[in-house]
Design a protein around this nucleic acid. Structure first.
Length: 562
RNA sequence: UGCCCCGUGGUGUAACGGUAGCACAAGUGAUUCUGGUUCAUUUUGUCGAGGUUCAAAUCCUUGCGGGGCAGCCA
């Protein structure tokens, strides 16, 4: 029974195919998948989906996953990328065990297959140039013409291929082509090239080869060699499937994996094409592949995204066969969901406004208890120093507050988180009328945050001690990844990388953050989730904002404006 | 205007001829020492037209719409 033509429901259609194959004992009960990136760039969130699918399907069925570097184009590939790929896959939480493979390890076998193809009269060496081949290929609506070299004898083809390999011909002078059907409505079946001459140093095989196999030829055979049962890939390879099957059939390979396609992950506001990401890196629009603005796995890691959140996002996004655009807010949801449970809380003031507690003694520090994570009692608590001079967030004070503003205002009382109730008594301004300082009084009876007389306060704000706070740098990436408005066709980097894509702010953080290590993630209370960046120094920590907290006040405000 | 794939709320996805459900987003209310979290609750959908059937998101025909394919890239 051909599972392909059975009416499987769209969701989990891959699972359905695998289950059917298992039921029919198609591969002797085995499930072997593979994740086959080309090491020509860093992995991005789109690859995360492929990784989750490949590993997920295997794990569900007690199968194995091969990590295979699809390195058949020496011009683009590099060892740096293979290391990054391994690192990122591991970080995402997947383990390929000993099953690390390289297509370049199969070059000899692939060559033998090419010879075999010639012997079976299914391939020929063609002398047409690139332009001529294109011309002979025909168009989408017209059939192509056969190459004048199509009917060379087997002996001549064998000899020519051997000489191609020996480097007797110039780059591009000849190609080995599959002999299929120049009139096929599928352009990929019109005698596709399977070997090209390319004198390029390969990062693994060096200069051993001057001919390299093409994807369509190398991929199916690599799959077959490795005993892959289900070759899962993205939709754009759908039209390649007849060719995938053709090679394996003609060569009568003992293992014939089934290629299954699903749709790529697309996320709003982000550009996923490796070519574009490479351009961003190469032209220094960003600071490398792991720039926190990049939608790469390494960029997201540096930004503070967690593997758990990414996996949950990918899981929620589903597997289908139609192109879709997933909302970034879904990713952010899973990120908040994960971090809310795990991230330690800390107080950090992004835009400081000085507050003097006039009735608090000078040169005195009160050590207050602060809960590290209200969602996780096991996270314990810490001491936060409270002094006469503090900083609060500028936004947390309004001289003329609109209705429903719960924070500090002249004569109004708020709670300092884990601290005291304070009341604003006086607003100090400079000559230009800018607010420079607030003079407040505190209620000593409210130590810890609640009043013995049962008095309620609507707002709770965050703060740091002016004498104990540490200076830090906050990097706010807005709104997300690289792009404000990803163009589909060509990149206009000036427009894409809006000037606000990084906003660097000096901020003040509570002293405990001096000990934070790169990679550690905090929730700055009422501000957002921040990840300590490797750029941090001993004196000054750098924090990348992962994602902000939900802000219902912004909504209230914007509604008021309308 | 060739061939292939695909159309379910704003978005992403379920429902193998039998009650169109879930999540995100949005709205409302409650709780809260984070305007966070949590809880409750509301709104919005089968691309159109025919057909088969007791019954269609599902099967058929057709129209419309979206995507892919003319690298010696993967």
């Amino acid at each position: 029974m051909d599972t392909e033509n059975t009416n499987t429901p769209p969701v989990d259609f891959i699972r359905a195919i695998v289950a059917e194959d298992l039921k029919n004992n198609k591969h002797g009960g085995a499930v072997v998948t593979r994740f086959p990136p080309e090491p020509n760039g860093y992995l991005h969130i789109g690859h995360a989906k492929a990784i989750c699918v490949d590993f997920g399907i295997a794990q569900e069925n007690n199968g194995v996953v091969h990590l295979r570097m699809d390195d058949t184009n020496p011009a683009k590939e590099d060892i740096e990328y293979v290391e990054a790929i391994k690192n990122d896959v591991k970080w995402l939480g997947f383990d390929w065990g000993d099953n690390l493979f390289y297509a370049s390890d199969y070059y000899e076998k692939l060559y033998d297959c090419a010879v075999e193809l010639i012997k079976r009269g299914k391939a020929y060496v063609c002398d047409l140039s690139t332009d001529e081949i294109r011309e002979y290929r025909g168009t989408l609506t017209e059939p192509g013409r056969e190459s004048p070299y199509r009917n060379r004898s087997m002996e001549e083809n064998l000899d020519l291929l051997a000489r191609m390999r020996n480097g007797e011909f110039a780059d591009g002078a000849k190609t080995l082509r599959a002999k299929i059907d120049m009139a096929s409505p599928n352009m990929h079946m019109r005698d596709p090239a399977i070997y090209r001459i390319k004198r390029e140093h390969h990062y693994r095989t060096g200069d051993k080869w001057c001919i390299y196999p093409m994807y369509d030829f190398a991929h199916c055979i690599s799959d077959s060699i490795e005993g892959i049962t289900h070759s899962i890939c993205t939709l754009e390879f759908e039209i390649h499937r007849p060719l995938y099957d053709w090679f394996l059939d003609v060569l009568e390979m003992p293992c014939h994996p089934q290629q299954i396609e699903f749709s790529r992950l697309n996320v709003t506001y982000t550009v996923m094409s490796k070519r574009k990401l490479l351009t961003l890196v190469k032209e220094n629009h960003v600071n490398g592949w792991d720039d926190p603005r990049m939608p790469t796995i390494s960029g997201m890691r540096r930004r503070g995204y967690t593997p758990e959140a990414i996996r949950a996002f990918v899981g929620a996004t589903g597997i289908t066969k139609y192109n879709s655009m997933s909302d970034l807010s879904l990713l952010e949801h899973f990120q908040r969901d994960d971090l809310n449970k795990r991230a330690l809380r800390a107080m950090a003031v992004m835009n400081p406004l000085k507050v003097v507690i006039t009735n608090f003694p000078e040169n005195t520090t009160d050590e207050l208890d602060a809960v590290n994570n209200p969602e996780d009692p096991a996270a314990g608590s810490r001491k936060v120093p409270f002094t006469r001079e503090l900083y609060i967030e500028k936004d947390d004070f309004m001289e003329e507050p609109p209705k429903k503003y719960f924070r500090l205002a002249p004569g109004q009382e708020v709670r300092l988180r884990y601290g005291f109730f304070i009341k604003c008594e006086e607003v100090i301004k400079d000559a230009d009328g800018n607010i420079t300082e607030l003079r407040c009084t505190y209620d000593p009876a409210t130590r810890g945050g609640s009043s013995p007389d049962g008095r309620k306060v609507k707002g709770t704000i965050h703060w740091v001690s002016a004498t104990h706070a540490a200076k830090a740098e906050a990097r706010l990436y807005n709104p997300l990844f690289t792009l404000e408005n990803p163009a589909e066709s060509e990149l206009d980097f000036k427009e894409l990388l809006n000037p606000d894509s990084v906003q660097i702010t000096e901020c003040l953080v509570e002293p405990c953050l001096q000990d934070s290590k790169p990679g550690s993630i905090y929730q700055f209370e009422r501000v957002g989730y921040f990840c300590c960046d490797p750029d941090s120094t001993a004196e000054k920590k750098v924090f990348n904002r992962t994602v902000g907290l939900k802000d219902s006040w912004a909504k209230i405000q914007s509604k008021g404006d309308n």
